[in-house]
């Protein structure tokens, strides 16, 4: 009776341990630190090699495409970051001047950013167009 219980407990622990092992190793591989441009500047070379995620506004007319590589500038208040996108997925359709974009990748030793993933948020067109429009219940 007791032996049977131990056998079941052992089996369950083995399964959970395996899952935990995969989770931890996958976590090390997949984690990325979210940084603002300000933090990135302050940290400097300390973050070289770390996987990073950075958000900002795509600077006006900074997007240049050469084949599958796209370069552009990300803006956050007064700071700017030169980004080179080298990922295999195409740039999302929502990506264009003035939208908020999130890039994931590494800081290069020269301070520029090499991104292999990119997300762009839809700008809220509505507010831009109607300015002071607000809603109210009937």
């Amino acid at each position: 009776m007791a032996r049977r219980k131990i056998r079941f407990a052992a089996g369950i622990i083995i399964v959970l341990a395996a899952v935990a092992f995969f989770a931890i190793s996958g976590f090390q591989e997949g984690k990325a630190y979210y940084r603002t441009l300000e933090e990135l500047e302050a940290l400097g070379p300390a973050v070289t090699g770390q996987r990073l995620r950075v958000a900002g506004i795509v600077a006006d007319s900074s997007v240049v495409r050469e084949g599958a590589v796209v370069t552009f500038q990300l803006e956050q208040e007064t700071r700017r970051l030169a980004v080179q996108y080298v990922g295999s997925q195409p740039i999302p359709d929502t990506f264009k001047d003035g939208v908020e974009a999130v890039v994931e990748g590494k800081r290069r030793p020269d301070g520029t950013f090499e991104a292999d993933r990119i997300q762009a948020k839809c700008a809220s067109k509505y507010e831009a167009r109607y300015g002071g429009a607000k809603h109210a219940s009937e």
Partner: peptide, 18 residues
């Protein structure tokens, strides 16, 4: 106090064996 995201490698690493 630090935002850390996990990407596809994490999910794949664990869900493929599962």
């Amino acid at each position: 106090g630090e935002k850390i995201t996990v990407g596809a490698p994490y999910f794949n690493r664990i869900n493929i064996p599962i």
